[in-house]
Design a binder for these strands. Structure first.
Lengths: 245, 245
DNA sequence: GCAAAAGTGTTGGTGGTACACCCATGG
DNA sequence: CCATGGGTGTACCACCAACACTTTTGC
């Protein structure tokens, strides 16, 4: 391996970086979110040794020699924190600041992963869920990466059906509105959320319903997402192609 | 400047760090777009040797040991293709398929760069602009990456002010509508584009105007973008916070 | 005056929030 | 029958596409 096709270079002197100290290492990280108790939480583990001893960090690790980036983060989440129930996974960004890791030059490609509400994966002792709005002390640039993940999730909730990855297979509209509230960080009225998602064809009634609680109230209808694959449901409001095309 | 690619020399043991055989190399690429002659074009260079001899490729190259990703692609564009007038640059995606490069495992982080219309950077002999809708034979996964870039640009034209990076400092609305048409791939009516961008506060009149051509017509007013930094001008139509907050 | 290109006014549709109101259930 | 929560109907508004119309120029 390690062919090293150097691309082209103009100014020999400058272009010839250090004896190719180039990428000495590459790691893959994941921002894994789940709604727990009406709050958006992220999965973190606590570092037991330096650097950043006692700080919290994103799950992930070194990229293996023969695996792709997606495969690598899936493997590491399964092996290290026993998370196998990702309903959605997408690449977030790659950080390459030479100083981001005190041990030397390590690039990191971060992913956004979503676990549906309601399930409770068994995670190791040193691993836990933390509210995304109230992060503990975190090492490296990981807190920044969590914020990127939140922004991405917020945006996609608005124009895709990504809600399927936050909600369990069946849910009532009022439950769903709580998931949206938690992820978006502001109130979402159930009454309108129902109409928006129905109009867009994102959700449909299952036919079932849920008995009312002891305090009464009309039984709630159950819904499900029509598909569990990411789709863009709201092409941008503006600048779409003219009708006749 | 910068002629052909100078010898590739297999990176010595230096590139051999990762204990687990992890990342042997990392390159940085750029999809640089410019509107030329009412078409969206991308900057490519023609490979003189294998792999993919005679095919076209995205500009870029190995990441230097002491530079960040952004810095690296800026440096390489400046040195290798003499492009220094990027009005916008953002990270696109990172590809890590172990087989994407026949010479071995090389990760690639791709950027999207935009050069305003009207300027004509001097580029090397083997480098040229190609219509993005009619790409020549391209090596590696570079054609895919160009498509990612187009999708990203199209989306951002709809909800940000990224048009500032396609247009020259001053322009008429009808010119601007041609830039938008080229980048979006469909007609954009000048009459409505003007209103949309004015309402959103993206553009403003400079006061100047352009004399009409020999065929007559009312002189066109000149406009400029109010800012040349990326801003989201159209928060998603849906699911915004309630009014009272 | 006539053609050409820029710019304005207006209409109609879509898709959203807000809020009043009706429905089904438990006590 | 009342409180509680689910569900529907409707008013209103922002935003945009389409198109007719007006303005300003060259010839």
């Amino acid at each position: 391996m390690s062919g090293a096709e150097t691309g082209r270079q103009a100014a020999p002197a400058a272009a010839r970086p250090a004896p190719d100290g180039a990428s000495a290492g590459h790691e893959v990280l994941a921002v894994v979110f789940q709604i727990r108790g009406d709050r958006l939480c992220v999965l973190l583990w606590r570092r037991a040794r330096p650097p950043y001893e006692e700080h919290w960090a994103l799950p992930g690790g070194r990229l293996g020699g023969a695996e792709g980036l997606d495969g690598s983060i899936r493997r590491q989440l399964a092996q290290k924190v026993d998370v196998r129930d990702l309903a959605h996974l997408e690449q977030l960004e790659t950080r390459g600041d030479p100083c981001r890791h005190p041990r030397g030059r390590i690039l990191a490609t971060a992913y956004l992963g979503l676990v549906p509400a309601g399930i409770d994966p068994v995670v190791p002792e040193d691993t836990g869920w933390h509210p995304a709005v109230d992060l503990p002390d975190m090492g490296f640039d990981h807190a920044d990466i969590v914020h990127s993940g939140r922004r991405r999730l917020r945006a996609k909730l608005s124009y895709t059906n990504i809600g399927f990855a936050l909600a369990p297979p069946e849910f009532t509209v009022s439950q769903l509105s709580r998931y949206y509230s938690a992820a978006l960080g502001h109130d979402v009225a159930a009454t309108n959320l129902r109409r928006v998602l129905l109009r867009r064809g994102q959700i449909e009634e299952t036919g079932g319903s849920v008995a009312s609680g002891r305090s009464g109230g009309r039984p709630a209808a159950l819904f499900r997402f029509r598909t569990r694959r990411l789709e863009i449901t709201d092409a941008f409001a503006v600048l779409r192609p003219p009708a006749g095309s």
